[in-house]
Structures are given as structure tokens and as C-alpha cells.
Design a protein around this nucleic acid. Structure first.
Lengths: 341, 341
DNA sequence: CTGAAAGCGCTTACAG
DNA sequence: CTGAAAGCGCTTACAG
């Protein structure tokens, strides 16, 4: 068995209280005793039990994180920054990866409670009633990152989806496009899907353009759905001259579909994505995207949550809105420069 | 404060022992008592403390995982499967994301020990002496996943890198290529970099071909390094007609570099990757790759580790070698079909 | 079938 | 400056 504090005390010839004191770096321990304890610790290879400590201190330094899909470049980047910031603040992460399996989320929320995590970060885009209820009575600070439930009762770190989508659409309109396809996300549960859709339509109205229902589609944020939906869109007559997808993954799927049909981006169809994931630089042409401050988002999420956890929170109990930014790469071009087909 | 077992006992009018018994689903509790306890639990919203349980049971159901970069499609896919398998077996994950910061690994290993995780999974490609020593005296079952340290002392779940690289190179040779560029990985610490390099050179020798040193480069497995290295390779006269990169990420970087120089894959240069990450299907042309069984790898890693942890391990204490598989997509073509430049 | 008591490995008043 | 004792929230022999 691993040595315990008692073993250290015995070996150093002091009380466990004293060992505990040098462990916790308290003053009021004579130097020679301190040295003896330190030596005993080294010789025994003693490491204090976080379990026992947590029990008495009533503090676990644990954060629970729920990710919809760790494999997604967008979420994994946020997670990476969450981990980094948490680690910097002495917190460790219990990570739950939902993959379609919403029951798992419920189960993990229970686990989080059992483990007495000090705070919970949720990035999932779906939320059923059962989970909503559980979250409500969990009595653990919860924060949503990059997503916002339609309920007003939870705090989110998020961008202004409406304006981001509005700006992305305006960008395409400014380039001279009038037939702009839209690949949206889920319209239930989370506000992002709705707000981005409204941003798209509002930009059309403000520009005096007609909204063509046949150019509007919805996917699930993943590449394959962008591909499938684009396939349908290409059947339209005339086909759109530009496409706005509300995730980079779907935008890449759309680009690939366009490519596989013998057409070119941006010569035949301009494509703009959303998120600012690593993919934007890995595909050709590079993908122009309405970017979220992904790195900052992970950091701010943890900072805000830690504030919520602390005894006297400084921040107001409200959403944190981060700035979006359009990053131009090579997937969009003015309508006029379009090559004849 | 959250209710404790004592509160439940009081409310149900029984002893804490009895509550504990129904919590742990033991027999020997009369139905009516059981019902009373259940009700009290519901009414109080009681959730047992995993901390307290761990302390007395001497079992944490925790696994520590060290990932070099959660953001990489390859590692995040393995991690996703690790999480899935662990969860299925009632284990939770503490995740550490190293990013260049090797000190963090040392620190986390300490944390893992403090938290009394039952097992550790390491996917990092580097290992300094300090960490090696710490690992040696940690007294916690450790398993390496997808990487294998040069020391023989640790167990790995891995493919046969030598043969995989050999087969990949042979594939190119069979297609008629003779000038095959190589983008390798780190040759220190881990065996993968070395074995893949040797597989490449051996395939040349067995085919009676000359190895051209100027076509051999090394990167760090990430896209950017593939890009940079390819840039150098394109300066060779004559330039290679095919390239083998030992990671899909580097292969994609190389493809992008080729594209940015006005050349085409596979018409001008064939490219084959390694890993079988999601990227292979997201780029155009789709990337042919020597694939590792990524999904299986995560599962097998956890299964093997759990066996190691158990009281009577069934498996032998040795590496688990998984099968590699060449998956042809569209990034390679026979040398003869090459279009004239 | 049920409960009182000891103990898991620590920290923290309290006393000296 | 140092130590004996209580207690964190559970489980598990042990006795009945």
C-alpha cells in the first residue's frame, strides 16, 4: 500500500499534525522538524491523498465538462483552452463526451454531482426536459460555453449570433451576391440556430432583397450534413452564387460537394463558414469564416465559472458576449468577377 | 449544504447502515424499510458522495489520460473512444492536455497520483528522463496508446509501425514511383518515428531502389510541418513523384503546399498519409492513407488497462499489436499515368 | 434482517 | 512551535 501521513509521522518522529502542517506549507514549524518531515516524505515517496483532503476541506478542485463531440475541431479547441485555464487555476477536469447519446449526459450529470465537482461546463446543443430539470436542482454552478439554451435561466459565454450571421450575410451581399444559400443549424433547444437564421433573413430584408425559401436548408453542424444539403441546393434553378453555412464543418462539406460536382469555389459559388476552426486553413481554397474567438471563449468560460464558484462573485450573473470577427480567406469573391459557366 | 447519509437515516427513521445497504443494493433489507429509505432519498435529493466512498472503498474509478494535443483529429478520436469505453465500464476520466509544455506532464502525473487514479493512459510522443523516472516509481498501472517509448518497460497498444510504413512505401513503388519523398516523425523517445523510417528505407532496399537522402525530411506530425518540409522538397531536382508522410496531418500540409505551388495531387505528385484520421475524407482529393484502427485502439487501450488494474490480469504483460490497413482514396496514381508538366 | 462502532487518510480547532 | 482528538461522509465487519 501507498504510505500515508501516519507512516511519515512515525518515520520522522513527529505527530501527523506536524506532517500536515509542512505539507500545507504552514509557518510555525521549526526548521529541523520541517527538514526531518521532508526527508521522511522523500524516502517513503509519500503523496498526500487528494480524496482524503477533499473530504475534509470540502473542496474537490474538480470541474465537469460536457462536450457534444470531442472529435470536432471547434469543440476540441475550446476544450483545450478550458483545460489550460483550469489547470492554471489548480482545477482538474472530468470530461464527458456525448455522442448522440443524450442519456449519457443525464448519467454524467449525476456522476458530476456524486463527485462533488465545483462547477459544470456544458457545450451540448441539445437539452431535453429531464436534463433541464436535473440541472435546475443540481445546486452546482453551471455555465454554458459557445451555446445558449432558450431558457433564460442559465449563463452562457457566447457571441452575438444574430449580428454575426447578419454581418456574414451582409458581406456576401456587399460582394454583389443576391442568390445566397443558407445552411443553418438546429432551431430547437439552443438559441444559436435561431439567431443565426434570423440574422440571415434580416440582412436580406434590410438590403431590400427577396428571401428565397428554396435556398434555405438545415444541417447538424457536421461536415456530412453540409455535403448532403449542398447536394440538394445544387438542384435549384438557378443555383445560388454564394452559400453561408453556420459552421465551418458544414461549409467544408458544402465546398467538397461543389467540388465533387465539377464546380469551383469561389469561381462558381462563394462559400463562407462560421466558427473559425482549424479547418479553415487546412482546406483549399482556404475558407473565409465568421469567426468566434475560440481560444478566448475557453478561457473566459473557466474564468467566469470560477468567479461563480467563489464566495463573492464579482461578475454580474449574466451572459458574457464575446466579439465575432470576419476573417477573409479565399473562398469568396465578388459576384461580378464570376467566371461564366 | 447537500444532505448526507445521516440526514437520510434520520428522515427514514433507520440507521445509516441500513441506508448504506439500500444505496448499495444489498439484500437483507425488508421491503418497507427499503421503501422508506428510497422516499427519504428522493425527498432530500440525496446523492452519495463519491469522495467518501472512494476513501473507504479504496477505489476511485478514475483514469488519468495524457494527450499531446486534444485538438488533433487523430488523438481526439482515440480519446473519444477511450472515454466511451471507460464510461461503459464505470470509469471517469481526468484529462490532461499537454501542448509543448512538458512540465505540465510531470505536474499532472503528480496530480494523478494524488487523486489515486487507478490507471494512466499516455499518448504523448516525448518523454524526458525526469518523467521516465517518475513513471517508474508511480506504482499505478500505465499504458501507452498509439505510441511506444523506446524503453521496453512499458506496455503499448500500437500497430506494427515498421510493416505499416513498409507497406505504404511498397504501395507507392508498385505504382511505379521511384523518387518517393519521405516526411518522417521524431526519431527520439518513441519507436514510431524510427520504425516508420526503417520501414521506408527497407522497402527501397528490397525493391533494389536507391535511397535518395535529399528526399528525406522530418516534421512534428502536424500540418504546418508537412507544409514547410514539402516546400523544401519541391526545390529538389528532379522533384519526387510521390510523397509518404507518416501522419495524415503532415500529408495534408504537404498536399496544400503542392497545391499552393500550382501543382496537382495526384497528377503531379502522389501523396499517401498515415493514421486514417477524419481529415482524409475532408480534403480534396481525398487522402489515401495507411490507417491505424483508431476506434479500436481507444477501446483496446482501456480494456487492456482495466485488465492490468484488475486483481488477476488475464492478458500477458506485453504490447498489443493492432492491424494496419491501406485505404485507397484519390491522392495517389500510377507513375505512368502522370500527366506531362 | 438491523444497528453501533471502527476506520478510510487527511485537516483543523483547541489546548498546552 | 507541537500534539491529541474530533470530524469529513461513507462502508464494513461484528454482534445481535
Amino acid at each position: 500500500m501507498a504510505p500515508k501521513i501516519k507512516d511519515v509521522a512515525k518515520r520522522a518522529g513527529v505527530s501527523v499534525t506536524t506532517v500536515s502542517r509542512v505539507l500545507n506549507d504552514e509557518k510555525y514549524v521549526k526548521d529541523d522538524l520541517k527538514a526531518r518531515v521532508r526527508r521522511a516524505i522523500d524516502e517513503l515517496g509519500y503523496t498526500p491523498s487528494h480524496i482524503a483532503r477533499s473530504l475534509v476541506r470540502k473542496k474537490t478542485n474538480l470541474l465537469g465538462v460536457i462536450v457534444p463531440d470531442i472529435t470536432s475541431s471547434f469543440y476540441s479547441t475550446i476544450l483545450s483552452n478550458i483545460e489550460k485555464t483550469a489547470s492554471l487555476n489548480g482545477y482538474n477536469l472530468i470530461v464527458c463526451n456525448i455522442i448522440e447519446d443524450i442519456d449519457k449526459e443525464y448519467k454524467y450529470l449525476q456522476v458530476f454531482k456524486e463527485m462533488r465537482v465545483e462547477g459544470i461546463i456544458i457545450m451540448h446543443e441539445k437539452l431535453n426536459d429531464e436534463i433541464r430539470e436535473l440541472i435546475g436542482k443540481l445546486d452546482i454552478p453551471i455555465i454554458f460555453s459557445s451555446v445558449k439554451p432558450v431558457d433564460q435561466s442559465f449563463i452562457s459565454v457566447i457571441i452575438d449570433d444574430y449580428h454575426a450571421a447578419y454581418d456574414a450575410t451582409q458581406y456576401l451581399i456587399q460582394l454583389g451576391h443576391e442568390r445566397i444559400g443558407f445552411i443553418g443549424g438546429d432551431m430547437r433547444d439552443m438559441t444559436s440556430g435561431q439567431n443565426r437564421y434570423v440574422g440571415y433573413t434580416q440582412a436580406f430584408q434590410d438590403s431590400g432583397l427577396e428571401i428565397e425559401e428554396e435556398y434555405i436548408f438545415f444541417g447538424d453542424y457536421k461536415p456530412q450534413s453540409g455535403y448532403n444539403v449542398m447536394k440538394e441546393m445544387l438542384k435549384c434553378e438557378p443555383r445560388p452564387s454564394a452559400v453561408f453555412a453556420v459552421s465551418d464543418d458544414m461549409a467544408v462539406g458544402a465546398m467538397n460537394c461543389i467540388h465533387d460536382h465539377g464546380l469551383s469555389v469561389p469561381e462558381d459559388i462563394s462559400v463562407i463558414g462560421f466558427d473559425g476552426s482549424q479547418l479553415t486553413d487546412l482546406v483549399r481554397p482556404r475558407l473565409t469564416s465568421m469567426e468566434q474567438p475560440i481560444d478566448e471563449m475557453g478561457k473566459v468560460t473557466v474564468d467566469t465559472l470560477l468567479d461563480l464558484i467563489s464566495d463573492e462573485p464579482k461578475g454580474a450573473q449574466e451572459d458574457v458576449i464575446l466579439k465575432h470577427k470576419l476573417v477573409e480567406r479565399n473562398s469568396c469573391q465578388p459576384y461580378k468577377n464570376r467566371t461564366k459557366v
